[in-house]
Amino acid sequence: MYVHHHGSGHLHRAQSVARALGTPVTGLSSLPCPEGWPGEWVRLPRDDEGGHPDDPSAGGRLHWVPLHDRGLADRMHRMSEWLVAARPRAVVVDSSVEVVLLVRLHGVPVVGVVAPGRRHDAVHRLGLEASTALVAPWPSGWTRRLLPGLPDHVRDRVLAVGAISRFPVGSPRPAAERRRHVALLAGTRGDDFTAELVQSARQQTPHWDWTVMSGVLGRWHPDPHAVIADADVVVTHAGQSALAEVAAARRPAVVVPQPRPYDEQDTTAAVLREGWPAVVTDGVPSNGWAELLDAAHALDGEGWRAWCDGSAATRLATVVEDVAGRRSSP
């Protein structure tokens, strides 16, 4: 499994799928090996620390291949060396067009994990079309909306398995006589939230208790499940893993999409406006927080069931097993 090092969502998803596979799995990533990983971990050199990149997109034909970058060369060499030695039955790539191509050039089948957004450009299409199988961590029926502009012959190959949460699916907590509690998932770097905006939101909602989970704005919780599960409302960005964890806990949400390449979060947020237990905003609000939290609190968190039913990792693992089982005898 190739695990992209940007953010933490790719790693969380990989851990869930690796557990579902129930067999030794090799991780390929620049991230450190997580505790309990069920197999080898190949630590890759970084390819984004070489200063000002020279022609990183190869004239628009790829996403990240800067010329004369030692980190890129060492990274690709390390993966190639492992592919030749290990002869894997399949590699899950989440997510990189360049890694899809490298693996495929070694004659190894690829299970590509697709992210939402406008990914109909030639580079994304190359990676999608070169993959042996394509899976998406969102519920079935929404792929056309979550991958706008993608040709039908590519989009029709995408199997939507549902959102993958590292936490077990829970049930909405019964109402209790207590002060209401809101949990803010602001991301590792806080995203567009600022200390001033968070303080203003607190002041506007004196009848709510806030827990701020952020590496820069509050306290970073590596395992936020207990906080999310105890919240009456969760305020979150529209990243896939954050939404999966909120959905698994069956908590209503205020979703604040953040700027991301290819309109990833905006595309997701547009879908969330259509009947899901979420109030979606346009950017971080400066006013109206009391009304937003009350509106979200009135929603039924059980409505997340179709988004995250707790079996998505198993479904993705089944795809991997099917692709890996196609290997012919030498």
Rank of each mutant, 00 (worst) to 15 (best):
D322R: 15
V233H: 07
E302D: 14
R78E: 12
H106N: 10
S165P: 01
V198D: 09
V255M: 01
A58H: 06
T318P: 00
L292Y: 03
V284P: 01
T211I: 11
L299D: 00
H5A: 05
P259E: 08
R13V: 05
S95C: 15
T314R: 14
V93M: 08
P56R: 06
A231K: 04
G112L: 11
A201H: 03
A163P: 04
H181E: 10
E177A: 13
W142Q: 12
R125D: 12
P259G: 03
H221D: 14
D156F: 11
L72P: 05
S329A: 14
F193Q: 11
G60Y: 10
V92T: 07
A270M: 04
G71W: 04
E81N: 11
H225G: 09
W210T: 08
P168E: 02
L272N: 02
D48C: 06
D294M: 07
R327T: 09
V271H: 01
R19A: 14
L31W: 03
Q199S: 15
V212F: 03
A244Y: 04
D309W: 02
T188Y: 12
T211S: 15
S214M: 06
R75C: 01
L272C: 00
Y262A: 11
L147I: 06
D48Q: 08
D209C: 02
L272D: 02
V17L: 07
R189K: 13
G117P: 01
V111T: 03
D55F: 05
A248R: 00
A201C: 03
D156A: 15
S80H: 14
D300E: 04
A312H: 05
L292C: 01
L83R: 06
T188A: 15
H181L: 05
L316Y: 09
